[in-house]
Design a protein around this nucleic acid. Structure first.
Lengths: 214, 214, 214, 214
DNA sequence: GATGAATGAGATTTCATTCAT
DNA sequence: GATGAATGAAATCTCATTCAT
């Protein structure tokens, strides 16, 4: 089944960054600094000099490899979300039941942000919802692709509701996860959100499954 | 029934603005300019001078009443969200059924953003999720209060599920609405989202209602 | 003997102020405030609002009668220097000897600033030497005229030196007085400078008198 | 002989500027611009942006090194008056006679302003007499020290008059020079004032020398 | 790859002056 | 004649980005 991704206005033509020449140690220091700073303060309250000195790297190096403050942030996010994607693919292996598969998707996301709460905080303090939608990094086509695919399958098999457009199913799934993670962190909860993944998922399932489904 | 509001860190002590002295015409021009500009471009891409000249008001006047670019934006948002709150209260009058009440809440929100898409766009381009949660303006305690109250009632009457914490019900409700509005605009849809309010609400209802409920 | 005053570039065409309609009490309050404030702080450190509130007069009244901060200051100075001129004319009456006349001029000036030290302070903190020369108010043509006249007379009678241009005699006379008053105040001396007028004048006299004169 | 310098109120604690890091070329361009602009117009009529663009240097660079418009002006003046001081020391070498020494002081000053008329103009348009006296830069302690010292010597040797306080001698000397330079420029004279240094000095000498001295 | 400096843009502040009541 | 607000201009400051070494 072919997915026709939404035609979005600007894909914010990011000049593709080549980080391959960048020393791994330095790169880690930069990413750590970015995570540390942008998760604590809002984008425009974080100074570029601060990033450089926290990472113990020269300003020029960052500029050379990342190009700008914005690009730096997005590039780092791409790294982290890439980790999420990898983990997702890994965990979906060998799952049979349809519901189990969706549940797993749900769980992997909650679990990821339980393990990387700063990534969530950073996205909340430094990324506009807007950018989210317009920027390739945040649309995470691979991840979304898998999910869209799965949901489409569910409909095709008569498992998920067909009262609404397919994309709306995605909206429910994503909307709930986003808000749950967001509020879990805002409320400063410490027990892993993934602990409740089952109950929480059951609710989403009820929303998107064809009524009558168990 | 007593509500224990979340203890949130900083309430971002906004020095209360006094707009009562501000000429209504000027205020409208300013709010229009803010809506126009911040919905098109991101917060930091909108210049203060631009706002002033678009509103045909001097920089100083804006500074006098609003204090800063940030405060200006938040204050305007307060105005608009206040309109939403008013409308909500108005529409909830005289509704009997519990489900009808919740459905109405859902509908009023979708309808509001159908009528004021720029407000949604502005929030997406210029407000961080984070600020959202921390800033009193965005928490809209009155609005949330009503909703929380309603949800609590629903549980007390055995209508809503008690598998999860009450606040999680709120998260589902809000999460879905947020994402629906967000994506509706991102996708550039033109038919009112509120047209589908019924189907969309039914899905949310299935998620949060105690299973077995019609 | 006719005096041909220097042709100076701009006479800073002050739109002649008409203070005749201004209530005497208000005018006094304004002049007092100006004297008080401009003698303590530099011109640009004195706010117009401050002047109005110190004088207990509305900003508009000051603007109406004086036109601007600069004009206000100059107009007040004209008043005070006018008092000096009056006093000068008064005191020069009935003096016979040439030297006595000059000495008297010298004394009247020192005495005036002994009595009105704030006027001196104000001139030092708020008037540029430049403006001094270019502005009619400060050139005080009447006063200077008398002095020039007297010095010319002295040369004609063979009393004053003719080694230099007449105007240079004026420069010596004025330069010394200016500096004496200036430093007397800067040093915070309290005994009247006029007390020493005799000795001090004798020195000036030696400078400008034709050698051999007693 | 010990000099007890006047205790002056505030020494206007200038946060010492460090211009050593400033590129010599840029510094020259800045000083030229300052000289050019402030000698033509009054302090508050010269915009900072104008200075920057005239000097072809960015606003920020000037702020970095000088801190403010006022500090910029004073710092430049320090440079120029420092040149005068250097020249003075240089020229006083190897002069024997007491009178010759004083005459030389007189001449060097007149000559300096003949060569740098804009410096004089700038001081007249942009520096208040007051600031002059209170600000270390303008008191030029080294220069004044030398002069004070010389005058004290003259008294000790019985050459200068002891009718008045030593400081008064300084006042005569300075007052005359100041006024001569000031008026020479105001009158737009073009022949060097230093040409007349001899006659002009003789007059000052008569004023401060003990009568009977040649 | 690091360092220090220069730049341009834009936010914020202060204030004389003007307007309207 | 007083009051309060609006305006324009200019000073000052912060910061991302660029340059040169």
């Amino acid at each position: 089944m072919k997915l026709k991704p939404e035609k979005l206005k600007s894909d914010q033509a990011q000049p593709v960054l080549d980080l391959s020449q960048l020393d791994a140690g330095i790169r880690t220091r930069i990413e750590d600094a970015v995570l540390h700073l942008f998760s604590e303060r809002e984008f425009h309250r974080v100074g570029f000099g601060e990033i450089a000195s926290t990472a113990n790297v020269s300003l020029q190096t960052i500029y050379k490899y990342y190009g700008s403050k914005e690009a730096l942030l997005y590039s780092c996010l791409e790294t982290w979300l890439g980790m999420l994607a990898l983990r997702m693919v890994d965990h979906l292996q060998g799952i049979e039941t349809y519901q189990d598969k969706l549940r797993k998707v749900f769980w992997v996301v909650l679990d990821f942000f339980d393990r990387n709460p700063k990534v969530a905080q950073l996205m909340m303090s430094s990324v506009y919802l807007n950018t989210w939608g317009r920027n390739r990094t945040f649309r995470q086509p691979e991840l979304m692709g898998v999910l869209m695919h799965t949901l489409a399958d569910g409909r095709a098999q008569g498992i998920l509701t067909d009262e609404v457009d397919e994309k709306v199913l995605l909206d429910y799934f994503m909307g709930v996860m986003e808000r749950l993670v967001h509020m879990h962190i805002m409320r400063g909860r410490t027990e892993p959100l993934a602990n409740d993944a089952n109950v929480l998922f059951k609710m989403v399932w009820r929303a998107i499954a064809k009524p009558g489904q168990e």
